[in-house]
Design a binder for these strands. Structure first.
Lengths: 339, 339
DNA sequence: CCACAAAAAGTGAACGTTCACTATTTCTCC
DNA sequence: GGAGAAATAGTGAACGTTCACTTTTTGTGG
């Protein structure tokens, strides 16, 4: 316990005095700018350590007009759960030397657009990453200064990462089922306000066409189990559908339930796939075939794009598989007599 | 598009000039400090609007030595998923006028303790909320200046909120099962580094004792399905256990699986309860009895404690039920012949 | 109408750093 | 060893706000 009231933190000036140099030299030392004689560097370093000096980042921000802070926007409500993505995004930001300010915005993509503008305008952050859709009305785009990256959003910016990667796996899913005889498919999509939902839907349709299969169509859902259950309920008895690609595991759980309620066996009469690898899905009966997504990497990649954009550089995106199909019991060969 | 390069933002000085007052008067206006003549207030307001002036919060921070920012620490890895809590915490912080900086820390509680110290020391945040355990080695507690609240942590600070509330529901769960005849219970806990896991365990033991029931003991798990499955596997044939309280839904799914594998019916031979209300749990067979937790409120309450602590006030915590038992198919009356 | 108090407004410095210069020291080469 | 260049170090101002005062204006009672 020190005896004085508040033990004011030492400043660059005090370090300079102790080291016997000018404050500017200390400043250079702190920015590790080079151009310091070895002996000087050591003296300053010793002074810094002796005083326990730590730079005042706010004062620095004030002078440099850079905050070293990026904002991440989270959807406030709803089933979309960005946890792992957030962790990945934060890790990437930290690795790049940025702090992350997180905001969560209730309401739809319009509300988020408002917040994006507000943030861009505040001068508090150097870039903005939104993990949910953002729609800008008319010309009210954010001022040119602050880059914005939207993940799972309307913007096309993520197309190179999320959508295509997503897509290829939907294609694999369909192809894998086709390989065991399935010909007629149904897709229950997620909320189409999400790029991920749109991407999966489009890829589904493209793949079915490309492989010469039949689509019984797409039911536009909302990521809920109920939407999956309803989709199966409203299927005609003679629809001929033998495989359902659900938007995620929760929807798939609803599809399975709906099928069982109609007396259809899964996978004996109907194969069902999910998405997300919800740990509980492995314990459904039948255990759910699903897609394990490296959400952390998804967030990391998005953040890397943002950082690159802030710095005016090219993003260095990671490679390797982002999604991995986990085949389990809810999928199987097509039934002998197609229903 | 303006013709100049960067359209520097207007400062308080320019507002003052336009309004024909001193910069100090503008400053007073901005802080809505009162003591301004109505006519003056209007003139300044008009100038602010005309210039589109927005205060430079960094400059303000520099002078006031307050950042208006709180930090939230997230566990980097592991099954613990703080998403809804984070959303709640952020909402509460925003309502109180604070921005939130989120950090995620890989590694154990020791690593988090390091980060807490680093943050407390940085002068960048006025308070720290950790959503995962933090253990301080020896005397290296954070400097007195910056309040720290640990949610789901070793600290006793949350006891009034999380643990007791949790506890009461475990008691209800056990009592509910006892009411339909169960006498001998097993608890599969979560990782005991989490206060929530410890709280549920303690309450389980206390309740069993209080109601004059029998505990077959507690298996210390790690929130994983495997730990639940193992717990059931290693149960003696004649253990007499008819009800298992699992730490969460994933563990419960493992317990159910383990029971079915041994040929025990759920709930005919064994009742199983989970925790978290994982949406997929409703579609397990049997559908999982679980506890629906208002995680958002959990986060909000924790943040409210932090804000109160920063301001030296008493926290205004919300009331109403935090947890709600959802009875489903995985629980039922005790089997006629107790195994 | 004046003395005095209270209210309103103004003045200059300070917060802790970096920027844009200038001054000094050190090195290199003939 | 000395001129010139390069490396190193120093000086003062500036970033945009609020703090701690001081000055001016307005209001009040005798």
């Amino acid at each position: 316990m020190s005896t004085s009231g508040t033990p004011r933190r030492p400043t660059i000036m005090e370090v300079a005095r102790l080291a016997g140099v000018s404050h500017q030299t200390v400043s250079r030392y702190l920015r590790s700018e080079g151009g310091l004689k070895e002996s000087t560097r050591e003296r300053v370093g010793a002074a810094v350590r002796e005083l326990g000096y730590r730079p005042n980042l706010i004062a620095r921000s004030m002078r440099t007009r850079r905050t070293g802070r990026l904002a991440v926007l989270l959807p406030g409500l709803g089933s979309f759960s960005p946890d792992r993505m957030l962790v990945g995004a934060i890790a990437a930001a930290r690795a790049a030397g940025f702090a992350v300010e997180v905001q969560s915005v209730d309401g739809g993509s319009g509300a988020r657009a408002e917040r994006v503008l507000e943030l861009a305008d505040s001068g508090q952050v150097e870039g903005i990453l939104s993990l949910a859709p953002v729609v800008h009305e008319g010309d009210r785009m954010p001022a040119g200064e602050v880059p914005v990256v939207v993940c799972a959003g309307y913007d096309d910016q993520m197309r190179g990462i999320g959508e295509l990667a997503d897509g290829s796996v939907v294609a694999d899913l369909v192809a894998g089922l086709a390989a065991v005889g399935h010909r007629r498919f149904l897709h229950v999509s997620g909320s189409l306000r999400f790029a991920s939902a749109r991407g999966r839907k489009e890829t589904f349709l493209r793949t079915v066409e490309r492989l010469g299969l039949e689509s019984h169509g797409v039911v536009d859902g909302d990521w809920s189990a109920e939407s999956g259950r309803d989709a199966v309920r409203s299927l005609a008895e003679d629809s001929g559908v033998t495989a359902v690609i659900a938007a995620n595991d929760v929807v798939a759980a609803g599809v399975v339930r709906g099928a069982l309620e109609r007396g259809w066996g899964v996978p004996d009469d109907l194969s069902v796939t999910g998405w997300d690898n919800n740990p509980v899905g492995a314990y459904l009966s039948p255990a759910l075939t699903t897609v394990d997504v490296d959400r952390e990497r998804l967030g990391r990649d998005a953040m890397e794009r943002l950082v690159a954009s802030v710095r005016g550089a090219e993003p260095a995106l990671s490679d390797g598989p982002l999604n991995r199909i986990v085949w389990r019991e809810s999928t199987g060969p097509v039934p002998p007599r197609s229903r």
